[in-house]
């Protein structure tokens, strides 16, 4: 595993970042699921999720309901942390370092500085080196990924377009990042200074990527992944784990499945969760992805990302 040595940043020591990326290593080859209550968290764990993201509204609901989306209530996060044995993540608004301080205080295992929530700062992201808790951040391209890593992110994920069930932007972001990485590996040493300028990223990190041919932290995927085939697609494109947001516990019109009172809807959520977990592990075996896809009952209504107005896009949040 490669890691930063702290020479490029205010990171107190290499030790901190190694522990942070170390947890990300443990999450590889799995599925991280958005959950809005204890019961959903239990279903996720039972289905084989490697981690859950505790939040009050999944992206599909935030998109439908509008308003300001903030960090989840600490009470909810604590209940979920008590209910499951797997790591628990939670989201803070971009730039909202006090929400991050609160999440660290609660003891969440990973903080997602997320574009799904309404940004709190239109210029600065959180100084993630200042925290002992690891951070994951979204990125659409290599420059954005390296800026977040320079700020202390221990994991990068594609942004995609959250809450749509449309994987097109996650694909685009993953392809863009990997193409930009491959280009760096072919350039000459003296050409890298200009690349750093073009990407708007620190030279040391650009050089590291050019040498290693990969990001210095694990690279996961999120944003619109809704089916077992979507998960396998992102894994084949190079994602090391997938986040599934609205794809498991939602039905049409941005309404959560009634897992507590309706056995049929509960079974539907369980089947989706299990199927995506199987597909993320056996992403290279079409026969198994086919079997997993067959397990799924019901479908999540998709919102084509192309039909969303520019101002409503979440992926353009973050700088």
């Amino acid at each position: 595993m490669s890691h930063l040595n702290g020479s490029t940043s205010g990171n107190p020591s290499g030790t901190g970042l190694r522990l942070k990326t170390g947890l990300a290593e443990m999450l590889k080859g799995g599925v991280i699921m958005d959950v809005m209550n204890v019961e959903q968290a239990r279903i996720a764990e039972e289905a084989g999720a490697v981690s859950v993201m505790a939040l009050e509204r999944v992206p599909a609901m935030i998109r439908a309901e509008g308003g300001v989306a903030r960090m989840a209530n600490p009470k909810l996060i604590k209940e979920i942390m008590q209910a499951v044995s797997i790591p628990v993540m939670a989201k803070a608004r971009i730039g909202h370092f006090v929400e991050a301080q609160v999440l660290e205080q609660l003891g969440v295992d990973f903080i997602d500085e997320s574009e799904v929530l309404t940004p709190a700062d239109e210029t600065y992201h959180i100084d993630k080196h200042a925290f002992k808790t690891p951070f994951v951040c979204g990125a659409r391209n290599l420059g954005e990924a390296l800026r977040r890593i320079a700020e202390g992110a221990a994991m990068i994920r594609t942004k995609g377009e959250p809450g749509t069930g449309d994987v097109v932007h996650a694909v685009q972001h993953m392809r863009t990042m990997n193409r930009e990485i491959r280009i760096l590996t072919a350039l000459r040493e003296e050409e890298l200074y200009n690349e750093a300028k073009l990407h708007g990223a620190p030279y040391e990190l650009v050089r590291m990527v050019a040498q290693e041919g990969k990001l210095p932290v694990p690279n996961f995927s999120a944003g619109g992944i809704a089916t077992p085939a979507d998960a396998a697609l992102m894994m084949q494109l190079g994602a090391e784990t997938v986040f599934v947001g609205s794809g498991i516990f939602m039905k049409e019109r941005a309404t959560p499945l009634d897992i507590e009172n309706d056995p049929k809807e509960r079974a539907e959520a369980v089947s989706r969760a299990k199927a995506i977990v199987i597909a993320a592990t056996h992403f290279n075996e079409p026969k198994i992805v086919a079997e997993a896809s067959e397990l799924v009952t019901g479908t999540m209504k998709g919102l084509a990302a192309a039909a969303i107005e520019e101002a409503q896009l979440m992926q353009t949040r973050g700088w």
Partner: peptide, 13 residues
């Protein structure tokens, strides 16, 4: 290393 609950889920199959 990883999540033992996840491992068990895969090993059931």
């Amino acid at each position: 290393g990883g999540e033992s609950t996840t491992f068990l889920k895969h090993l059931e199959r």
